[in-house]
Structures are given as structure tokens and as C-alpha cells.
Design a protein around this nucleic acid. Structure first.
Length: 184
DNA sequence: AACGAAGTCAACCGCTAATTT
DNA sequence: GAAATTAGCGGTTGACTTCGT
């Protein structure tokens, strides 16, 4: 496609950390026009940012009811359970944690929980080293195993999620989870 | 106190899915 | 139905902070 005018005048977008002024501009624009058509928002709000960047900033920091930091034990437990079910489906997991964002959960997982599980896996690896593989095979398969296990398996340390959670007691909880999805 | 290593987290990138024209 | 545009996702990066020596 030929440039409409001098191509050398291509605008260079801002990158990196957002300033308070930029936040304010974005918030004000969205308050008036709503959070849709991010390219337009980026162009008309007076921000020298791309639409993607605006969307991310809004979703992760500026939108109302965002919780930041201090992930509670309950939330942590929920993240662990959901991750076991869904793998790295951060947006789905975030959807079950009001006020939390996919990015925050992803970061929390990568910096806190993955290590926790890694440690747990290692200690259990030692204690269950004698357990025969045949015992493991007789366990009930995890729901979502087909999809979830693939995803988890690609990035997880090598430990058996069946060891980490007792799926027999999880089934009820899992069913509730999917009921929620069907009836929003 | 100074320095390097490790940890944390905000933001970007590349890609796919969904929607619009 | 095809092409273009937009939205959304997950992985990765890099700047900053904290910790250990």
C-alpha cells in the first residue's frame, strides 16, 4: 500500500511505563466513550500509544474494582486448583478471581506458585519414589485431562498432578466450576 | 558500602479467534 | 464467502528492587 503522504513521517509510539498523566487521559476518554475500539481510543485520547498498549493498561490497572497485590490464601488455593484444571489458561483463571487480572495471576504463578509446586513435587518425588507406576495408573483420570494435561505438561516441572491434588475429592468442585461456565 | 545474582512485575510481541465490512 | 480489522490470549522481555556476599 502506498503511503498517503511522506512515509518518513511515520509516528513513533511511546513505549514503556505509563505516566500518571497518560493514565488520567486514558481513564477520562474511556469514561466518556467506553472501552471499545482501542485503536480509536489510542488515536483520539491524545495518547501516543498503540491500541494494544491502551487496552492492556486499562484492563490491568485502570479499570474499576481492580485488586492489586496481597493474594490471599483462598485466592492462592483457587489459582492452584484452576491451574491444575485448565493449565496456563490465565484469562479463564482470572475470570474466577474477581478483581484479578490474567497478567497478575500469570506473574504470581511464575514467581511464586510454580516454585512452590516445584518444591512440593521434589519432596513428593522422594517420598513416592518407591510407589509403583501401576498404582498411579489406577487413579481416576483428571477431568480436562486431554486438554489441560497437555498444556500443563509442556511447561510444568515433572511431577504428577494427581499427587498434588486428590481428584476423587475434586470432582464435585470441578462440576460446580463448569456449571458456572454454562450459567453465567 | 559496593556489587552481582536472583526475584518480581509491568509492558510488549506474536499469534489466533472473533467480528465487521 | 473473503478480506480486513479488532480483540484477546499466552509467552517473553527488560527495568527495577531485594537479597546475599
Amino acid at each position: 500500500m502506498a503511503p498517503k503522504n511522506d512515509g518518513s513521517a511515520k509516528k513513533v509510539m511511546n513505549k514503556g511505563a505509563w505516566t500518571a498523566e497518560e493514565d488520567s487521559k486514558l481513564s477520562q476518554y474511556i469514561e466518556v466513550h467506553g472501552a471499545k475500539r482501542w485503536k480509536t481510543i489510542a488515536a483520539k485520547s491524545g495518547l501516543n500509544r498503540c491500541g494494544k498498549s491502551c487496552r492492556l493498561r486499562w484492563l490491568n490497572y485502570l479499570r474499576p474494582n481492580i485488586k492489586r497485590g496481597n493474594i490471599s490464601d483462598e485466592e492462592e488455593d483457587l489459582i492452584l486448583r484452576l491451574h491444575k484444571l485448565l493449565g496456563n489458561r490465565w484469562s479463564l483463571i482470572a475470570g474466577r478471581l474477581p478483581g484479578r487480572t490474567d497478567n497478575e495471576i500469570k506473574n504470581y504463578w511464575n514467581s511464586h506458585l510454580s516454585k512452590k509446586i516445584d518444591q512440593k513435587g521434589k519432596t513428593q518425588e522422594v517420598s513416592t519414589a518407591q510407589e509403583t507406576t501401576s498404582q498411579l495408573k489406577t487413579r481416576a483420570p483428571a477431568p480436562m485431562e486431554e486438554e489441560g494435561a497437555k498444556i500443563v505438561g509442556s511447561s510444568e516441572p515433572t511431577f504428577d498432578v494427581n499427587e498434588f491434588f486428590d481428584f476423587s475429592t475434586e470432582l464435585e468442585w470441578v462440576n460446580k466450576f463448569f456449571e458456572l461456565d454454562e450459567n453465567p
